[in-house]
Design a protein around this nucleic acid. Structure first.
Length: 215
DNA sequence: ATGACGATTTACT
DNA sequence: GTAAATCGTCATA
């Protein structure tokens, strides 16, 4: 039973939310809340402030370019709302959410969050990365690798159905102010080897937000 | 079996 | 600004 004073349960993003093209989902995710529930029940959450779209077989920057389908990339082919987490550079993880339709390997990379819940836990999770003093809030999840570290996301969380998972999901939050935000649209980061696709404007972020990567 | 590379981050000059 | 860290994944053989 919920107490009369408790806040109403946030609405979880459902299949329909994710079932659109990657560019639309990349914009739609901005301002929504990404939630990670740890094994001890701790809730870590933040507002998504930066995303990138990966357009599948035709996109030379995508892991699914040319239809490449391997155990690693399999979640990209899953139903919309499937998590795709990969390990790279021998030390970092990056998190995506599949979009489009099942069998269509398109996804959105989550590049940065504004930490909202469990900030101290995120700081502890990130502490090992630097020898510096405690990190500022805006430095906890301002990049795809940092975000995964702050939320304890690794490839054991790849392939989850985020419309069902109890450990990783998106909550839709009321965004009356969203229409007031200005979105910035730029080329994607770190895909210089992708020829003409490197120039496509497939990255979005909330203009002026302090938690965006590469400030 | 082997080798090249990466949707990054950090530290250092 | 540049370089190092570090290893799973994938293509080739």
């Amino acid at each position: 039973m919920r107490s009369p004073t408790a806040a109403p349960a946030a609405a979880r993003a459902d299949r329909r939310f994710f079932a659109t093209d990657a560019e639309t989902l990349a914009r739609r995710l901005l301002g929504q809340r990404l939630v990670r529930v740890l094994e001890d029940g701790t809730r870590l959450a933040g507002v998504i402030v930066e995303t990138e779209a990966y357009l599948g077989e035709r996109d030379a920057a995508a892991h699914s370019y040319g239809g490449r389908r391997t155990p690693r990339t399999e979640p990209m082919f899953g139903p919309p709302g499937t998590s795709y987490v990969y390990f790279t550079y021998g030390m970092h993880h990056c998190m995506n959410i599949s979009a489009g339709r099942e069998g269509e390997p398109v996804a959105v990379l989550i590049r940065a969050l504004e930490p909202i819940e469990g900030v101290e836990r995120m700081r502890a999770l990130r502490a090992g990365a630097t020898s510096e003093k405690p990190l500022a809030v805006q430095a906890l999840a301002n990049g795809p690798g940092r975000l995964c570290q702050a939320l304890a996301i690794d490839r054991t969380l790849s392939g989850l159905d985020m419309t069902r998972s109890e450990v990783l999901f998106v909550e839709r939050i009321r965004r009356r102010s969203l229409s007031e935000w200005q979105l910035v649209n730029t080329p994607r980061i770190g895909v210089d080897g992708a020829g003409a696709w490197a120039h496509r404007l497939l990255r979005w972020y909330i203009r002026g937000h302090p938690c965006v990567s590469r400030r």
